[in-house]
Design a binder for these strands. Structure first.
Lengths: 220, 220
DNA sequence: GTCTATAATAAGATAGAC
DNA sequence: GTCTATCTTATTATAGAC
């Protein structure tokens, strides 16, 4: 009688909500992303996360132990999303100029689509990057871009198309700066200069301008 | 007898700490900057601000009424600092290329020296720019750069040195993106790619590279 | 104008039933 | 594994003396 074999007709509104650990966990994680993104680590409220969830606050602590732990998992998830997508670019088989173009366009689109990622990185920097520094998972995942870019620059230089001695880290930083800033500072920049970053035409303009700027930088 | 004419020898350790409203206010404001900068609006603690102060927590509420009000004043102060310095550049009297160079260098140095400003802007964007949007003072102060830059671009185009049809807002955004990102993301970028942004040699390298990139962009 | 002490409340975390 | 109710601490804000 202590087993759960009774009351099939008891709660009609609770259809299909049987125990489902993985789904609950993912559900919490998604809610946490939304909450951390719109308030930072300090600004996020555990109660608010629970409200965004189909489950209760208790479950947050059950699965993640603390607010900080939850934050770290969010961080790792969002950083991981980039790596997964940026692996499939095959930048080593195309013409150097085309490689630069594609890399800029890819980075642009990725940041544009992942506002969440950008916001969480902003927050990390406000926290002096303390959690990124802690997470070995994150630190070890970010060098694929650099080697790909290095290949492009080297081939470009060999073919006489690009300048000699360009460093991948420099080019990468400039690409990131453009794509990141356009998302990270859209609210203040938008308010100050009355620019609407959601306008598709402006977005296309920026995208092409960034490609152009980078190409002008690398060309011999 | 209710006037304050007694006890000149009472407290020897409290020398010179007579009532000084302006100084107290400024003292609180400086402490608030430090605290808001290293934790954002939500992360900052009023107690912590008081501790950084030569006065008490009570005075914070006495002068600023609330944590939010204090935050807004910090915001306005830091934004104001830029305007004041960037007015004295006289960019309309020099050669166009030199104008671009100076503007980039100025923006670079300013961001480099004012980490506080950069952090507060990051925080503002996490808050969807809600306080910047509220402050009429801030919104009305930011158009001097744009007109100066516009002048440079127009003269450059007239002299056949620069391309036609370049927009000041675009150039300004790219300059800002470089200079801002280098400061705002130094912790995460530094941790991920093992870059030390405090290295003076690297700093000089970035500065020159940004000038170069912008010049390559505007040139005909 | 300034201080110490404290109220009021919000928020992170947990107990214990089911 | 999940829920509601609650404990505990931290934090914003204020009272009231001087």
């Amino acid at each position: 009688m202590t087993t759960m074999n009774e009351a099939p007709a008891a709660a009609p509104t609770r259809k299909g909500r049987k125990n489902n650990p993985e789904k609950t966990r993912e559900n919490i994680l998604q809610a946490a992303i939304a909450e951390f993104v719109s308030g930072g680590l300090a600004g996020a409220r555990v109660d608010a996360i629970a409200e965004r969830t189909q489950t209760s606050k208790r479950m947050i602590y059950y699965y993640f132990n603390s607010k900080e732990q939850l934050y770290i998992e969010v961080l790792e998830k969002l950083y991981g999303d980039i790596r997964n997508t940026e692996s499939n670019m095959h930048l080593d088989e195309i013409a150097p100029e085309e490689g630069i173009r594609r890399l800029v366009e890819f980075t642009f689109d990725h940041h544009d689509r992942n506002v969440d990622f950008v916001r969480i990185v902003c927050n990390e920097n406000i926290n002096h990057g303390q959690f990124v520094k802690q997470s070995a998972a994150i630190r070890s995942m970010n060098n694929t871009v650099l080697t790909a870019l290095d290949g492009i620059l080297r081939r470009g230089a060999e073919q006489g198309l690009f300048r000699q001695g360009l460093k991948a880290i420099d080019v990468h930083m400039m690409i990131s700066a453009f794509c990141f800033y356009r998302v990270s500072n859209r609210h203040t920049f938008g308010a100050l200069f009355e620019v609407d970053f959601d306008d598709p035409a402006l977005k296309a303009h920026h995208r092409e301008m960034f490609v152009d700027t980078l190409l002008r930088f690398v060309r011999a």
